[in-house]
């Protein structure tokens, strides 16, 4: 399929997801669910971050990343608002999507550093391994966040030992899935295409390398 058609489809999906989020906001206002009104507004702001970054700072996030962020937010807000967390394995699904998003983000960051920063040169399989362990570690940090919240505010973010182990296992699976996809994409050269714009912008703003002279 033509790249421009793929991009158009991606943009349409991204807008549809944002419209769903706005519908969720109206439902929460109608039902006066204050926590989800706040949640929807926060999620909408987060889902518009890529647009703000592009307009104000000329940073273009990969469209896949934008869509993944919005799907993760919709699943969480929708789950709470419509009571979908009661559905069997819904929590597992949302956790997987969030972990996959983290893994994707880790892959993008490490790949860009590998391409543009002199401080990191990595074989693609070593990169995949690093993505898996980073995703697991981020999952642990997330569990710390829930644990400390429960201790400080008496909430029930963590559902118990088995559930925490299950969450960590899902983090590992999401990291592995992303690692396999990422390595396949690097081999085909499509991961380079996906991150090229962002890589060059980050290089200009932060890394300030001379890629052509140093790495290629």
């Amino acid at each position: 399929m033509d790249k421009s058609i793929l991009r158009t489809i991606g943009i349409i999906i991204s807008y549809v997801l944002k419209i769903i989020m706005i519908i969720f906001l109206f439902i929460s206002i109608w039902k006066l669910f204050w926590i989800w009104i706040f949640g929807c507004i926060l999620a909408l702001i987060v889902s518009f971050v890529p647009t703000i970054l592009k307009r104000n700072y000329q940073i273009t996030l990969p469209l896949v990343l934008e869509i993944l962020i919005t799907i993760a937010l919709i699943l969480h807000v929708g789950g709470g608002l419509l009571g979908a967390y009661g559905i069997t394995h819904y929590d597992t699904l949302t956790h997987f999507v969030s972990s996959f998003l983290v893994a994707f983000l880790a892959f993008v960051v490490i790949y860009i550093l590998d391409e543009y920063w002199d401080g990191l040169i990595m074989d693609k399989y070593a990169l995949a391994f690093l993505v898996v362990i980073t995703t697991i570690a981020m999952g642990v940090v997330w569990e710390f966040n829930e644990w400390i919240t429960d201790i400080l505010f008496g909430t029930h973010e963590q559902w118990g030992y088995d559930d925490t182990i299950k969450d960590l296992f899902i983090d590992m699976i999401a990291g592995l899935v992303m690692a396999f996809i990422g390595v396949a994409m690097i081999k085909r050269g499509s991961f380079d295409e996906l991150t090229e714009d962002l890589g060059e912008q980050i290089d200009k703003l932060i890394i300030k390398s001379n890629k052509d002279e140093t790495k290629k």
Binding site: G119, L120, D123, L130, T134
Partner: peptide, 16 residues
């Protein structure tokens, strides 16, 4: 296949 800055090594040690 691996060239890493020392601070990146520190980060990898923690996540490992």
């Amino acid at each position: 296949g691996l060239k890493m800055d020392k601070y990146a090594m520190g980060f990898v040690t923690v996540v490992f």
